[in-house]
């Protein structure tokens, strides 16, 4: 007799059940039942944001090199377990070729963003030649906790394409997974849990977008939103409106994440603040000292 997997939430590096004790049936593309997923609640969001906030400081304080290696480690773990993911996708009704392509893209994307971790700063920072005796420079900083409405069209590549550029820049995320196809995302969390990604950096909830998105969008301790477009655009507009209360930076993503061009530095920098620092420059010998 086959042992069936229980799919739970991923919060703070743990796999808890929803505090609500609810679940919903997830079916394959062909309509066959696959598993029960957690039907997360508003309280699960509250818990997830809390741990994401707590995890943010230490994650942002890690060196960029360290974050790079951790994301690269995800690629290694995914590579090692790609068979499992391909199987999972094919059970969910995707053709082998499609499933294979999706997972390979996911691995590529991990490698791609791992490489960005310690480079985008150099490209968007600046030393600004102000017209006074001050050293003035602008550098990026993570925004904090980012709420993510994952792509609802793809099981995994959208999810990965959204969260990696956000976390590589030092943010932590609370993600609402693809509602209809949440299983791969939860399985991916098993990769995260074994890839040195600290608990709380990525938190994933499954359930009803209609129920959860307003709570996430209105949460006053969430700094930004990444919203993949969904069929239900009014729901997205509602989220945008709720996000205004604490001026969350909100990005709407309309990309087809399977495309090679659904990646880039701007996916990282969209979730960075620019901080400009000034400091006086002492004038030595009237500036005529050298040479």
């Amino acid at each position: 007799m086959e042992i069936l997997k229980t799919y739970k939430l991923y919060i703070g590096g743990q796999f808890p059940r929803t505090e609500s004790g609810r679940s919903y049936l997830v079916s394959s593309l062909a309509g066959e039942p696959l598993a029960n997923a957690c039907l997360a609640s508003r309280k699960d969001i509250r818990n997830a944001v809390q741990v994401a906030r707590k995890a943010h400081g230490a994650w942002a304080a890690k060196t960029a090199l360290n974050r790079s290696q951790i994301i690269y480690r995800i690629a290694e773990m995914l590579e090692a377990r790609k068979g499992q993911f391909i199987d999972e996708l094919s059970e969910a009704g995707f053709g082998m070729e499609e499933a294979n392509a999706e997972i390979l893209s996911c691995i590529d994307r991990c490698v791609y963003y791992a490489g960005w971790a310690d480079k985008f700063q150099a490209l968007i920072s600046s030393v600004n030649p102000v017209a006074s005796s001050h050293f003035n420079f602008s550098t990026p900083e993570p925004m904090g906790v980012v709420g993510v409405l994952a792509c609802q069209n793809t099981p995994l590549i959208g999810f990965i394409s959204q969260i990696l550029p956000i976390i590589i820049g030092g943010n932590t995320v609370v993600v609402l997974a693809n509602s209809k196809m949440p299983l791969s995302a939860i399985s991916f969390c098993e990769v995260l849990a074994t890839s040195d990604v600290p608990g709380g950096v990525v938190n994933v909830l499954t359930g009803s977008i209609d129920e959860l998105l307003p709570t996430l969008a209105s949460h006053m301790d969430v700094n930004a939103l990444s919203l993949a477009t969904v069929s239900n655009m009014p729901k997205v507009f509602e989220a945008q409106e709720l996000a205004i209360e604490n001026l969350k930076r909100t990005q709407l993503l309309v990309h087809d994440f399977k495309n090679q061009d659904a990646q880039g530095m701007e996916f990282i920098t969209d979730f960075q603040e620019i901080k400009t620092t000034w400091h006086p420059i002492e004038q030595i010998a009237g500036g005529a000292g050298a040479y």
């Binding site: 600046s126 600004n128 006074s132 001050h134 620092t277 000034w278």
Partner: peptide
Amino acid sequence: VWANTYNKFDPTSP
């Protein structure tokens, strides 16, 4: 962030 100064502005400075 103004360090050891305050309220400085410049066209080159974001």
